[in-house]
Amino acid sequence: MALTKKGEFWYGTTSGDTQAELRSYSIANGHEAVRFATSKCACGCRTFALQTDEEAGVAIRTCSDCGQEHLMGDSAGHLEGAAPETHGCVCENEVFELVSGVAVHAGTHEVRWYYIACHCVECNLVGVFADWPCEAGDAAAFLAEV
């Protein structure tokens, strides 16, 4: 399914739709995401609750199947003083498929900006729920931790 706009929100059904919305958002933000990764728990589950603190640069995903918490990207280095808040959809659901994207510094593979897009498993809303400037080093290594 392609992205469909209903009112002020976008809806889609695939991780490709979520990635397309993330890319569009990142272009409008002035830091285009060029590398992407979909979150997957060690248990195999692909749906999560999401908590973030954009000011601190912290994201935590909690598996909807096994309950395991995972610090995303380089969040472990920014936990002190962070106050992550749980994200919810406009339909009040709090379980999402997550796609992360990063913008990199020109001519490098070094992370410049981090985006987290969510796809609601209940209503199919897609959107970027969190983003922040991020100097996290190599994009591949960073995205391996989302």
Rank of each mutant, 00 (worst) to 15 (best):
L3Y: 01
L3R: 09
L3A: 03
L3P: 00
T4W: 14
T4P: 07
K5G: 02
K6W: 06
K6P: 00
G7F: 06
G7A: 05
G7P: 02
G7M: 06
E8M: 09
E8L: 11
F9T: 02
W10S: 07
W10N: 07
W10I: 04
W10A: 07
Y11L: 03
Y11H: 10
G12F: 09
G12V: 00
T13C: 12
T13G: 15
T13Y: 15
T13Q: 15
S15W: 15
S15L: 15
S15M: 15
S15I: 13
G16N: 15
G16W: 10
D17I: 00
D17K: 10
T18E: 15
Q19H: 11
Q19C: 07
A20V: 00
A20F: 07
E21M: 14
L22A: 00
L22I: 00
R23G: 03
S24P: 02
S24V: 04
Y25V: 08
Y25G: 11
Y25R: 14
S26R: 11
S26D: 12
S26N: 11
I27Y: 14
I27H: 13
I27F: 12
I27S: 13
A28K: 13
A28N: 14
A28W: 11
A28P: 02
N29C: 08
G30H: 04
G30M: 07
G30D: 08
H31C: 09
E32W: 09
A33N: 04
A33R: 11
A33F: 04
A33D: 06
A33V: 00
V34S: 11
V34Q: 10
V34A: 10
R35C: 01
R35D: 03
R35L: 05
R35N: 05
R35P: 00
F36M: 05
A37G: 01
A37I: 00
S39W: 02
K40H: 02
K40C: 03
K40E: 06
C41V: 02
C41Y: 09
A42E: 08
C43K: 06
C43I: 01
C43V: 04
G44Y: 04
G44R: 04
G44Q: 07
G44T: 01
G44C: 03
R46A: 12
R46P: 02
T47G: 04
T47Q: 13
T47V: 07
F48L: 08
F48S: 01
F48C: 06
Q51F: 12
T52C: 07
T52A: 13
T52I: 06
